[in-house]
Design a protein around this nucleic acid. Structure first.
Length: 126
DNA sequence: CCTGTGACCGAAG
DNA sequence: TCTTCGGCCACAG
């Protein structure tokens, strides 16, 4: 028996913009996971797409600043994307914002995850 | 129009 | 705790 996901597609054109719209609202001292951003946008299974959207920021220099460093993976770790130097800078930036990492380089998500109580959804999402 | 390129997540074994 | 696997597709050139 196969479970069929009930929700319609949410990763439609303009998805990257919607990701940035939400990520811009993550406050200093808090983090979000890729999956959480997807959940806020209507689907808990588009974490990978969220990662792609943030990676694309390198290619989109005209995009207003997005605090992408506040988005980490579900293990509570910075995704290094093969670039440990960048990851180290991301960790240092987060520490400057008050996030603490343990010896394994992990964040206590229970303590630091954004609760998104006052999140504003992008105009074209309900 | 077609293609290559990407920061992930959670269930199951 | 580890690995495997299916889910997910916009965007620039």
């Amino acid at each position: 028996m196969v479970y069929v996901h009930p929700e319609p597609r949410v990763v439609t054109p303009g998805f990257y913009r919607r990701v940035y719209f939400v990520v811009r609202q993550i406050p200093r001292g808090r983090v979000a996971t890729y999956g959480l951003i997807g959940t806020i946008l209507g689907s808990p299974r588009v974490a990978r797409q969220v990662g792609f959207a943030l990676a694309a920021l390198d290619r989109l220099p005209d995009e207003a600043p997005v605090p992408w460093h506040r988005v980490i993976n579900a293990k509570g770790m910075v995704s290094h994307r093969g670039d440990t130097g960048r990851a180290q800078r991301q960790i240092e930036t987060l520490e400057r914002e008050g996030i603490r990492f343990d010896d394994a380089g992990r964040v206590d998500l229970k303590r630091y995850v954004w609760d998104y109580l006052d999140v504003k959804l992008p105009p074209d999402v309900n």
